[in-house]
Structures are given as C-alpha cells and as structure tokens.
Design a protein around this nucleic acid. Structure first.
Lengths: 207, 207
DNA sequence: ATTTGTTTTAACTATATGGTTAAATCATGT
DNA sequence: ACATGATTTAACCATATAGTTAAAACAAAT
C-alpha cells in the first residue's frame, strides 16, 4: 500500500499556507491550492473535507509558530534588556522570512475573533515571567516603572507594523524604492532596540 | 424629476463602506451592500457599474481621509513636540471611532499594492515639513539626532497597532475583557506620547 | 497474483455571485 | 396631463466555486 500519504498531506498544507497567506480565506480558491500542491481537487477534499478545515489547520499552525517563538524568547531571557534585544532581533528576522504572515494573521483574526478563544485553551502567551522581570527590575531601579502590557504591545507594534504597512512606507516615504525599503527594515532591529532601551532603562547600556 | 439621486448615492457609499470595511473586498457581497443601503441590486449597479468601481471609490475616500488628517496635523504644528502630541492624540481618537479601518486599509493595500501608486499621483503625504522640523531641532539640540522616517513609522505603529491587533491584545493580555481593552486604549495617548518624548527630547517636558 | 489504500480522471451537483435586462411603478417638475 | 428620471420587480445569464461521486489506474505490501 502506498505510504506517500504523509508526503501528500505536507504538500497540501504547504500549498494551502502559501495561497491562504497571499489571498486570505475569502480570496483563496480550493482549485488554486490543489494546483499549487500539484494534485487535483478530488484528492484535496479526500485529505481535508472542507476549505474551513484546511484553513483552520493552516491558521493554527502559523499562529502557534508565532506564539512559540515569542514564548521561547521569554523563557530564555533572564533580564528585561536581554529579552527585548533577542525578541526584537529574532522576531524581525522571523517576519522578514515570511513578510505576509502578520497581515494574514491579523486580518483573519479580525474577521473571526472567536478563533483566538479556541486557541487560548490550546496554549497561550506566557506573560507571567515578563511581569516578574518587570517587577524585579523596577524594584532594583534598573527600569522606570511602566505598564508591562503597554510595553509588550509597543515592542510588537514596532516590530510588526513596518511589514504590515509596507505599501504605505515604501510608497509614501521611500519613493516606492524596494531597495530603500530593504535598507529601512535592516535598520529596524537596532533602531527599535535603541528606542525602547532609551525609554526603559535608567542607565541605557550600548550593546 | 426625482433629485433623490444624491441621497441614494450617499446611502450606497455609506453602506458599501460599512460592508467593505467589515468583510473586505473579497468577503463583501453586492447583495449585502444593496440590503444595507435599503435598495436592490439593480439600482446598485445602476449607480456603480461594478463591484470594483464601488470599492475603488470607497477605498479612495477612506484612504484620503486618513492621509488628510495626518497632513492637517503636520501643517498645524510648529514644533516636533507639538506635532507628536496632537498627532498621537487626534489619530488615536480618529481610529477609535472607526476601529476596523486600519486593518481594512492595510489588508487591501497588501492585496493590491498598485493602488497606492494611483493614489500618490492624486495626493501624497507631506513629509518635507517634518524633515525640516527635525533638522532645526536637532541643530538646536532640542532633539537627539534620529531618522525621521523611523520616527514617523514608530508613531504610526504605536497608534495603529493596538487596533489592528485587538483580538490578540484583548484575548491574550487582557483576559478577553472588553472593558480592560477600552481602558487600555484610553491609556494609550498618554503612554505613547510619553514613550516617544522620553526617547526624542533632550529635556523631556511634562505636559 | 491479490489486496489495500492512494491518486487521477472527469463528469456532475448545488449554490452563490456579479452583472444584465425589460417592463412596470413612482415621484416630481413642467 | 405629460415627460423625465429614479426605483422596484423579477426574471435571467454566465460563471465561479465548494464539494461529491464513481470508476479506473497505480503503487506497494502480502
């Protein structure tokens, strides 16, 4: 009996991921996914009974990856400064490789916010450690007292927005020049890190 | 002869705006727009020949409004600090009233980045004045030298992202509590203003 | 060689959707 | 009363789309 099935499932998932990310749930077509996977619609439905099931699978995998990266960084870090440095650097790096993922995830989440509730039971963000780091360092006068939630949102915003808003940034501020945009993104890691550290730390260290 | 036509056109535009913002171009249905406007499909196509034409009209109007608000703030301002304060405050205020506009605009722009080129010829962002303010104040040691483009992106990111990422912020960081999210947004103006000013100005003034 | 599960082929269904059409109705200004 | 343009009704068209089905072809394990 053929055991190529794991291969095929993978091919389908990869194709679906590509098409869904590019077109979104509403814009994606099952035929296009089948084509991209190099199979036919019948087989596609043989593996995944419906578009929704396939989408859910793809979305959950992508979203989990994003969350996992953040959680891994948080776990590794032993100081706030270290956390911010490695988070900013690795997160921007990650998104650079899949620049359309953030818009996809955010848009689909806005289209159907209930998806996040399903996910939370699955596995959520691990923020307690961040809160703890904050408390410690604030007490020791390493950081100014600041709302942890706001700071986390700030970090994510500064990292993610430049990718989601690429057309505006490139078109309006960088003469629609792809190279200038690339350069801009390359500068981002050090800019964001510096930006946040200068606000946060009482004696900002240069790294 | 009936001159209710201007009224009807308005009703259609408003309905289309609502549906497009909520569902996006791909998710929106002409029938739903007709229903929302309280008319029938035939009349809808009598006014706007195609979905694309209607979408373009709606999108351009929305996008223009966003740009116009920013440009107006830039024109009014005479110092960087003033600009940042009024921009952050008014921009967050504006988005609060139409919280789904940013995701809509960003997503449609990513779906079809060529739209921005069309728009640029129409009317673009007026950044020269920002650059000038920067230069002056950097020379006078009011602000640290910093890339203006990065700063503009920072301001937009810090203002816009909390709305685009509402499901994540609310679901993951605020116990999925709408009230806590509302409170979080209310805190944003002063948080963002303070955040940026502490990075930017050599002797940050309290306002 | 037979069995078993995979994959293709290709036709098909049901429905949704953007868009059209023609005739009828309605409101309003002349 | 008539003309004109707005609006409705309702049927219609063409196409796209998710999903199904049944039979055949294929590949590999027994």
């Amino acid at each position: 009996m053929g055991n190529t099935n794991e291969n095929t499932e993978l091919k389908i998932i990869e194709a679906a991921r590509k098409v869904f990310i590019l077109k979104g749930m509403d814009g994606a077509r099952m035929q296009e996914i089948a084509d991209e996977a190099g199979i036919n619609k019948a087989l596609l439905h043989y593996y995944f009974r419906s578009k929704t099931k396939l989408f859910d699978r793809v979305f959950l995998e992508l979203f989990s990856e994003v969350v996992a990266v953040i959680n891994a960084e948080v776990e590794k870090a032993s100081t706030l400064e270290q956390l911010i440095e490695s988070l900013v650097s690795n997160y921007i790096q990650l998104i650079s490789e899949k620049p359309f993922v953030p818009d996809f995830v955010l848009h689909e989440l806005n289209r159907n916010p209930e998806m996040i509730i399903e996910y939370i039971q699955h596995k959520g963000l691990d923020l307690n450690k961040v809160f703890r780091l904050f408390q410690d360092e604030t007490l020791n006068h390493v950081t100014y007292p600041i709302s942890p939630v706001h700071l986390i949102v700030d970090v994510l915003a500064l990292c993610v927005f430049p990718f989601v808003a690429k057309p505006i940034i490139k078109g309006f501020m960088l003469e629609d020049d792809e190279l200038k945009y690339k350069k801009f993104i390359a500068e981002r890691v050090s800019h964001v890190t510096g930006f946040i550290k200068s606000t946060l730390f009482i004696n900002p260290q240069q790294s």
